[in-house]
């Protein structure tokens, strides 16, 4: 029973990180039609910022804020410098651009910072576990869980009740018509990227706290998972992306916890198989709309 609950927490924590990343990807994709392959590098930037600010003896909370800020600024800059010039180009052009941005950033991290993992020591008050009943839950995991939930709730509120959020949702659905409402395209792009940068930054904090080190390629893997989550959730659906992230986290943890050890090497193949099954049953993804009408 304890194992089950603990693994449920594991699944939520891992899925939550995927969900944050997937949401950022889906947001940019639905507004700009851009599959941002450089999303993982935003995560890495946030992680490096955390590393350096801790190294330079900034107070920890300031390092956290700095890391998030760095990811947001990097995202906005990325849009402004790399993606705005190709905004009207074909999807393939944008995809290639983002691929180039990703490669350039990885090489830059390797050459300007270090090709090797750099250790990030979390302060001791974040270490260890807390007892909840008969359960021992890691402090960081608990925090990640709480923050993810709070952030998602905050986003629900923003998307539902603020002018910015409603405009984002509208733009995700129909970009041109949103402009016809007098909402500035540039503001939408900048907003989408800033938000995706923030989400990547938060995910980076959790990821680094769990991982203990930062390296130039660290963003690749979680963002790959987030892509899968976006597809499972339904390309273009924000709620779907979040659901896809949690589903993927649950599948991964369940397979690792339940598979007999001689089948463990196949867990990645099996988890992809489950994903394909989901897509066979629902080709448009969990929450995907079937594209209909004029567009």
């Amino acid at each position: 029973m304890d194992i089950l609950i603990q693994n449920l927490i594991n699944a939520l924590a891992l899925g939550g990180t995927y969900a944050l990343l997937a949401l950022g990807l889906a947001l940019v994709f639905s507004i700009m039609g851009l599959i941002n392959l450089a999303h993982g590098e935003l995560m890495t930037i946030g992680a490096y910022a955390l590393y350096f600010m801790i190294l330079w003896a900034f107070p920890f909370w300031l390092a956290l804020v700095g890391a998030l800020l760095c990811a947001v600024v990097a995202a906005v800059l990325m849009e402004r410098v790399a993606f705005r010039p190709v905004r009207d180009a074909s999807m393939a052009t944008m995809l290639l651009t983002s691929f180039a941005v990703s490669a350039i950033l990885q090489v830059a991290y390797q050459n300007l910072i270090s090709p090797r993992p750099l250790p990030v020591a979390m302060p001791s008050f974040l270490g260890g576990a807390v007892e909840i009943g008969s359960l021992q839950v890691g402090m960081i995991q608990l925090l990640a869980l709480g923050c993810t939930a709070a952030l998602l709730l905050l986003l629900v509120w923003v998307f539902r009740y603020t002018a910015f959020g409603v405009a984002m949702r509208a733009a995700a659905e129909d970009f041109d018509t949103t402009r016809l409402m007098g909402i500035r395209a540039n503001a939408l792009f900048a907003g989408a990227f800033a938000l995706s940068g923030l989400l990547a930054g938060v995910a980076a904090l959790f990821w680094v706290a769990q991982r203990g080190s930062v390296d130039p390629l660290m963003g690749f893997l979680p963002v790959l998972k987030a892509f899968i989550a976006v597809i499972v959730g339904g390309l273009g659906s924000l709620v779907g992306a979040v659901a896809g992230g949690f589903l993927l986290g649950a599948i991964e943890i369940a397979l690792r916890a339940l598979l007999p050890s001689d089948l463990l090497p196949y867990r990645d193949a099996l988890s992809l198989l489950l994903i394909i099954l989901v897509l066979l049953v629902r080709p448009q993804g969990l929450m995907g709309r079937r594209r209909e009408g004029v567009r």
Binding site: D2, I3, Q6, N7, N10, A13, L14, Q136, Q141, W207, Q210, R211, M218, L221, P222, E252, I253, R256, A257, S261, L264, P265, R267, D268
Partner: peptide, 19 residues
Amino acid sequence: GTYGWDQQDFSAEVTAIAN
């Protein structure tokens, strides 16, 4: 226990050990 090269989350393994 086994882990995959593409794995950075060890929560399931850690839970197994803890229990």
